[in-house]
Design a protein around this nucleic acid. Sequence first.
DNA 1: CTCCAGTTGAAATCGATAATCACTATTGAT
DNA 2: ATCAATAGTGATTATCGATTTCAACTGGAG
Lengths: 166, 166
Amino acid sequence: MDTSLQTRPPLGCAAVMMSVFRASLQELQLPVTQQREAIAGVLFESTGHLSADDIALKLEERGEHVGKATVYRTLNLLVDVGLATEHDFDEGFKRYEARIGASEHDHLICTSCGRVTEFHRQALDDLQREVADEWGFQPLTRQVKIYGLCSECAASADEEDLRRAV
Amino acid sequence: MDTSLQTRPPLGCAAVMMSVFRASLQELQLPVTQQREAIAGVLFESTGHLSADDIALKLEERGEHVGKATVYRTLNLLVDVGLATEHDFDEGFKRYEARIGASEHDHLICTSCGRVTEFHRQALDDLQREVADEWGFQPLTRQVKIYGLCSECAASADEEDLRRAV
DNA sequence: CTCCAGTTGAAATCGATAATCACTATTGAT
DNA sequence: ATCAATAGTGATTATCGATTTCAACTGGAG
């Protein structure tokens, strides 16, 4: 029997979020179905930015088939209850990410290779607050995306310039 | 004859942008077609955020029919040469806006009524520079969107809360 | 256990945007 | 001004992510 309560975190983050999700559903008087749990599970156990397809695929891999429509419906639900964040990195489809607490982070997006880098700046949070106050605006979420060339792509672009300039 | 060069700006902003557009096309060895001029004209003479449909409609209104495909193609072209900015306010379609110089501005988006308010903060420009430098990232554009309730919608939401709390 | 409101999923649909392709317009040279 | 080469145009079709439909199914309260 494992009694090492000290050395192991009491509950995985995913498990905590899952119970919050179940509570949210109950509060809204919505059934806790196995599909909803499966989809939320995949999202909560992943760290990256997943598309609806990614999630459907991961479910398929672990042998739990869930219809696309349900994936989309549940993702919208998760966003609505505040447990997931929706991202649009200009790929033509949305990506989703578990939203842990209120920790907002923002993104650098490489327009050449598509790489997405996350960053966080307290100053941005403060600025958001400041701007919102000025307009009497009540902020819920934000999306800060800086498009450009990542260090690698910028480097190879420079190389090409050199080659061209010969 | 109008010789009041002092009291009237020499060229409207739209006209200036149009000549820049023509120059850009020539530089790229692309024909300056009347459709491209018409589309750019509509965009440059408008202040708001226009969808492809808005533009097609405005062209229709002024009697110049242009095919949808051409509208989309030309908008992409305008974005590519840096004379237009693309926006996605989560409506399921893109909006476009003339890009005057390098003046970036950002947006507050009401999730209730959809109203879009523009704002500008020097501090944001500085922050962008700072974050980009830290990651060796070469920024091209950015999009800062703060979602929430505008003052009006926040007010009516408060009212409802009051009514409910009776 | 039973019922029923709410959910599910396959398929149909939708809506924005991109690709096709026959025809037309622009451009630079003559 | 005319011409050929080149690229653009637009009606239509295709694409693709996302939503809706609807008959069958299921969670959970009683």
